[in-house]
Design a protein around this nucleic acid. Sequence first.
DNA 1: CTTATGACCTGCAAGC
DNA 2: TGCTTGCAGGTCATAA
Length: 291
Amino acid sequence: MPELPEVEVVRRGLEAHILGRTCAKVAVYHPRAVRRHLAGGADFCRELTGSEVVAAHRRGKFLWLELSGNRALVGHLGMSGQLLVQDPQSAAQAHLRVQLTFSDGGSELRFIDQRTFGWLAVQIMVHRNGARVPQGVAHIALDPLHEEFDLARCVTAIRGRTAEIKRVLLNQQVVSGIGNIYADEALWRAGVHGRRVAQSLSKSAVTTVLRSAIEVMTEALAQGGTSFDALYVNVNGASGYFDRSLSAYGQQGRPCSRCSALIVRESFMNRSSHFCPRCQPPPRARAVTSR
DNA sequence: CTTATGACCTGCAAGC
DNA sequence: TGCTTGCAGGTCATAA
């Protein structure tokens, strides 16, 4: 469940179901799922077994369960990862990669991931810019829904970039949590074309883009996130329904809800961008660009 | 330092 | 009915 709202839905589910429980047994069914645990799968299991989960945190699209001993079970869902809280009796599903059972004999935690871009790892906690985060999350910027997120500062960081605004929004080291869906939605709301160079945008335009990102991700979170199919679900396996509220992403060929020009889809960074050609005027072609 | 590109995977839908 | 191609919510290493 990729972007910030979907990951936050999962974090809340973990907080509700896993907090205070002690891991009794771990099974790794696919080594790629723990490739970021550098000491290997056996060590991963050893680190977790007997550990108590004391908190559930998230930054951007990374989430972690804090453990005793200054460590955390860190996870990233990649493109297709799921963390499900399930009855131990229920049958294993396809693409089950990692399974955690708990000492109370209650529900277990399953990591399911079709494409294996996601991963789990036990990492030590480090200090970075006044925050305490797992080592593998230290390079990730604060996300716009974090209570310490500084909007003005982020606007300045974005405006210091020479790359196109959409590329900057997707750069998790500048601002985290925004992916392809919410980048397109935020740019549409702000009336800014994703190909415009970040540096060339006014302070107020960038501020509007970020406020739009905050707004659209907050609304999506309230609806349980966005999902188009069974791949993106909460810890109970249920889908969110923000897909009904999308204005740009996946809306190519349909009228813009603001001006009724047809939404366009085009290739961008080996993926897709969706925008309204009227509400989001494209930048003037640059001299060197050959089209 | 920054930016651009491709690699890493599986499965589905569309076109032939 | 196959087969091929393109596409999908992400991040990271590498090259320039």
